[in-house]
Computed example of a mutant assay.
Amino acid sequence: MRILLLGDLLGRSGREAALKHIPALRAALKLDFVAVNAENASHGFGLGPDMAEALFTAGADVITLGNHAWDRREIIPYIANEKRLIRPLNFPPGTPGAGACLATLPDGRKVLVAQAMGRLFMDPMDCPFRAMEDLLTRHRLGVTVQAVLLDIHAEATSEKMAFGHAFDGRVSCVTGTHTHIPTADHQILPGGTAYATDLGMCGDYDSVIGMTKAPALNRFIRKMPGEKLSPAEGEATLCGAFVETEEATGLARRIEPVRLGGRLAPAMPVL
């Protein structure tokens, strides 16, 4: 199975890059599945239902959120009815929406996508490890599902790496989101799970993690609140990873970075 995972869409430039490139990438890489993190797609904070619909139309199969899940209030009734949009699995019981989506491809193969949110330097949450363990008691890679994709939305690289090792051999891939900076540690873990600490953002890298530079710099230099942060709107770099899995086991055969446009060095898998 060939899978594309895209990191945090940041504002208009990130949305437009995803909408432009997803259809072409589906064809060029012969993709079976596309998952996108879009919790920052609406002016840097949250996701609007209209934006989610546009991403699904462009070819996203599942959209994940994160700590900004509820920044656009209108997403709450939308997520209750749209199973392809998921929020972190370890939100407290009773939170709207779901933390996982079981998708069925046209040929009948099943893909489980789940998101967990870290707890180091983040809001207090239920245990992400325990939440994922519970989910995997109901789905077995290579038996009941042909791929399991885990988005770990976390601040600390140590927590993300621990997550990868905790579920190595039981999921197809563990890839991080949230920090907006692509890491260079794409690898297949010893048990066969593809891993990358952070996919990076789809946004303008002439910025401070996607936000215009001057207001962000003032917050660091003067330690005072000032102008509201807003997304940088230059040309975006589309950032993510390409994962190919073994048909028999669902474990990873390869993982490679994907980078298109903008300021970062390009990277594109060769089939």
Rank of each mutant, 00 (worst) to 15 (best):
F129L: 05
P93T: 06
L120G: 01
F163P: 03
D123K: 15
C101T: 10
V145G: 05
T104Q: 15
R140L: 11
M125F: 07
L136I: 06
A100Q: 08
F129P: 02
K110I: 11
L102Y: 08
E159A: 00
M125P: 06
L136F: 12
C127K: 01
G142F: 12
G108F: 15
R138I: 10
V145N: 05
D107G: 09
A154W: 03
P124A: 06
P128M: 01
R84K: 14
G99L: 06
A100E: 00
N81F: 02
M122W: 01
R130W: 09
F163H: 01
A116S: 08
A131R: 14
H139Y: 13
N90Y: 03
T104H: 09
M132T: 15
A166I: 03
G118D: 06
P124V: 03
K160L: 00
R138K: 15
K110P: 05
R140E: 13
E155Q: 14
M125D: 04
A162V: 02
A147N: 10
E133N: 14
P93I: 04
P88L: 11
F129G: 01
V143K: 15
V111I: 13
N81M: 11
P88Y: 03
V148E: 03
E159L: 00
P92L: 07
P92Y: 02
G142V: 09
A114F: 00
D126T: 05
M132G: 02
V143Q: 14
V148L: 12
L149S: 08
I79Q: 12
D123S: 08
A166S: 11
D123M: 10
I79H: 03
D123T: 09
A162N: 02
G108N: 06
H165Y: 15
V113N: 05
I79K: 07
H153S: 12
I79G: 04
Q115Y: 10
S158N: 13
V113P: 04
P92T: 04
V111A: 10
M117R: 11
V145A: 06
F91K: 05
L149R: 04
G94N: 14
E133A: 01
K160V: 00
S158Q: 11
A114D: 03
G94C: 12
A131G: 05
I152Q: 08
E155V: 02
V143H: 10
A98D: 14
F167P: 00
V143S: 13
D123E: 14
E155L: 08
A154F: 01
A147K: 06
G164T: 09
G97I: 00
A114Y: 02
P92V: 06
I86K: 05
A98Y: 11
G118Q: 08
P106H: 12
K110S: 04
Y78Q: 12
V111M: 10
G99Q: 02
A114G: 09
I152C: 04
D107C: 10
M122K: 10
L136N: 05
